[in-house]
Amino acid sequence: MVVIGTVAGIATGGIAYFIPWLPDQASREASKIDGVYWFVTIVCALIFALVAGVSLYAGWKFRAPPDDMDDGSPIHGHTGLEITWTAIPAALVIAMSVFSGVVLAQVEDIPDDHRVVRVTGQQFAWKFTYPDLDRTTGELVLEVNRPVRLVLTAEDVIHSFWVPEFRMKQDAVPGVETRTVVTPTKTGTYPVVCTELCGLGHATMRSWARVLSAEDYERWAAEAAEQAGGQTQTGETETGETTTGEEGGGG
């Protein structure tokens, strides 16, 4: 019967694999996170198949005729079984936790060749400041294969920065500096979505993340440099003021 479960499980898992569950992977983190995602999916598919299989089988096999007056066989328990289904799930969850923990550490370690971009959420728009270029834009511009550290904060209420293709999400909290890191691996333009309810405009608080090839990025940075004069102050003041809180640490 466990066999039934396993077979059905692999089947479901297989099918699940061909449905486009996740957006395409555009960052180093994405592939790692998807790894966990699929691992968990397989475990869960197996478990569900087992549960569904057993209950369907039991429902079909032990169905009683309507006028049936008898009782089932008085089984009160079975220590062996109970130990098994305590131990196996325990093992599985530990496995999943360890895997997740490791991946978490990987996606969050910051290579030292990283750039820094300050991200500021406000009702209802994103602002991206590039300290090294001292420039502020409304769209996030990144260089492909170059890790970038995002330092987020918000001016009014909590927002949340998310690029589905990057798989990375981080709340931007007023008075707090939160951090995340991404390494885009695919050039292209991806949506930046606000995922924390922030009022009227929450649904429409969107922007774009443009991942440029190295040379395109250089070109962009260059023109950034010459336009810098005009562009600076906005970003400067904003981030200057809004990062007065303490670091995200604490209870």
Binding site: L22, K32, I33, V36, Y37, V40, T41, V43, C44, I47, F48, V93, M96, S97, S100, G101, V103, L104, V107, S160, W162, P164, R167, M168, K169, Q170, T195, E196
Partner: peptide, 18 residues
């Protein structure tokens, strides 16, 4: 089980608030 997905931090980073 979908709770287990969300319980795993890396997955939740992607799936939270969706």
């Amino acid at each position: 089980l979908s709770g287990i997905y969300l319980g795993s931090v890396p997955i939740d980073i992607h799936a939270s608030d969706t």
